[in-house]
């Protein structure tokens, strides 16, 4: 008999590499959910952080206080911000059948479905690397990838996320991230 230990919780799993802002974007999305009146847990897969090494982060969002303290094994949403990780891991692993897979990639949703055999839910693709380079001139693709996840899932309002980003990075960095986020929302493909 299957047991659901995550009632009322929307759970995210993030993949990226150390230094790409996985932990930051996870926290930022968490804080946006908090600002909309939710309870949250936002935590990295802990370890000595090394630049370039694969890292994971987890987020739980719920209307009720969250009492389970463990890694997320069956996420509702998986977000992978580094295209090169798709060579070494299957991002759909453990993802709920009706879940959402969000990837920074040049591929489209159909290619991704074929490649990883994910038949359910939604696949969302966005070329966040190109967006980041064109808008910011630097490979900060965590925020545009998160933007695609937010617009596809509707877990929070995109404006709330932008508010958190501007709050954390006042000035030019925040403004450019806002442009990148808005462009990612427009360019994300869902299929």
């Amino acid at each position: 008999m299957s047991m659901d230990f995550a009632k009322g919780i929307t759970a995210f799993r993030w993949h990226g590499r150390g230094g790409q802002g996985v932990v930051t974007s996870n926290q930022m999305l968490g804080k946006a959910a908090l600002a909309e009146g939710n309870y949250i847990q936002a935590f990295p897969e802990f370890g000595p952080e090394r630049t370039g090494a694969p890292v994971r982060a987890f987020l739980r969002i719920s209307k009720e206080p969250i009492q389970v303290y463990a890694q997320v094994y069956i996420p509702d949403v998986v977000v992978c911000i580094d295209p090169t990780l798709l060579e070494v891991l299957n991002p759909a692993e453990g993802l709920k059948t009706e879940g959402t897979l969000v990837l920074n990639t040049e591929s489209d949703p159909k290619d991704i479905r074929d490649r990883f055999g994910f038949k359910g839910g939604k696949v969302v693709t966005v070329d966040a690397s190109t967006i980041a380079m064109e808008v910011m001139g630097r490979p900060f693709y965590n925020m545009p990838t998160m933007a695609a996840a937010v617009s596809a899932t509707g877990v929070v309002e995109i404006d709330t996320v932008i508010g958190e980003v501007l709050n954390r990075y006042p000035g030019k960095v925040g403004d450019l991230n806002k442009v990148a986020i808005e462009r990612a929302v427009k360019e994300a493909q869902i299929g």
Binding site: G30, L34, N38, Y39, I40, Q41, A42, F43, P44, F46
Partner: peptide
């Protein structure tokens, strides 16, 4: 440690 020390909550 980490489970709470590095976990953002409300």
């Amino acid at each position: 440690g980490f489970i709470l020390s590095h976990n953002v909550e409300r």
